[in-house]
Write a protein that binds this DNA or RNA. Structure first.
Lengths: 156, 156
DNA sequence: TTTATTGACTTTCTTTGACCTTAATTATAT
DNA sequence: ATATAATTAAGGTCAAAGAAAGTCAATAAA
């Protein structure tokens, strides 16, 4: 089953597109629209609309409260440069990497194809085997990339 | 009689045929369908649906989790598929990799851009092997890819 | 000896709810 | 009319429960 969180994510992104990247909503409205706990909205925002994802959020409590979501549009080179220099430290988990890739695709910095290739190169499955044998690691990564290319072909 | 694992293998392959090589399933469903331990599904996947066998698998945990199985295009029997199944063994030096990439470009299987990206992911510099810490390795690979994207921009 | 099977334990991701904080509005006392 | 108190209307936090899949090692079967 598609997760509710994914559906809400898509919903918000659609709203954002319709409103040119800026949007104000009412947490309780959204929650009752999807018939879920209000805090699930926070969960969606916290896991899919962070700064790293390229969104900025501000909110206000009390009467007339709201949540405002803004999609940040960045310059491609600036963003890549930032990621390279500061955004990524000495370690990077697969989940984090995937988030970066998603953002890069959403902002049109790389094609889905590129993202797919890159993802295949850095996936846990590809890297696995901590045998410290460089060539062995590379062989796996390379095979994984070949698989990605093959399955891309299949997709069209 | 045939072992359960073989039966499950056949079952999955039948499903794949019916769904044109792409399939999403629920591990627990399958396990309870065959009345076996869920981990047996993993065993079947690990022993019969590997990259070398020509399958690509991705999965997700948590609520709404799934396992996705993609059959890579066996009929094609082209260069990429050959490379994946037989052409590359357990190890692969950088020079060999580069030769493969060159050939793939020459034969029109991938663009120069693709080759450039891939090369950046598998270069000695990218893999570097400091410790056995996976995430550390991935971070390097990912940075390397970013650098590649940046320098692609510069070139055009 | 290799290949299968099982199950206990782990990790990841999602959903829910109880409780907290803040802001605006309304009622009350001066 | 004004200051203060109470009420209501938001949103925030966090931890527990639930829903998957993953790992690994012990055993069993071939």
């Amino acid at each position: 089953m598609a997760r509710l969180s994914d559906i809400i994510e898509e919903f918000i992104k659609t709203l954002l597109k319709e409103s040119e990247g800026e949007l104000e909503l009412q947490r309780n409205d959204l929650a009752s629209y999807f018939d879920c706990a209000p805090s699930q909205i926070n969960y969606v925002l916290a896991t899919r609309f962070t700064l790293n994802h390229g969104y900025y959020i501000e909110s206000r409590r009390g009467g007339g409260g709201y949540i405002r979501i803004v999609r940040l549009d960045t310059d491609k080179d600036d963003y890549l440069f930032y990621l390279l220099k500061e955004g990524i430290g000495k370690e990077l988990s697969e989940q984090e990497a995937v988030k970066h890739l998603q953002r890069m695709v959403e902002q049109g910095f790389i094609s889905k194809r590129d993202a797919y290739i890159i993802n295949s190169a850095i996936s846990d499955k590809a890297i696995a085997i901590p045998s410290t044998l460089k060539d062995g690691i590379r062989a796996r990564i390379f095979k994984s990339i070949l698989a990605a290319l093959l399955s891309l072909d299949e997709k069209k």
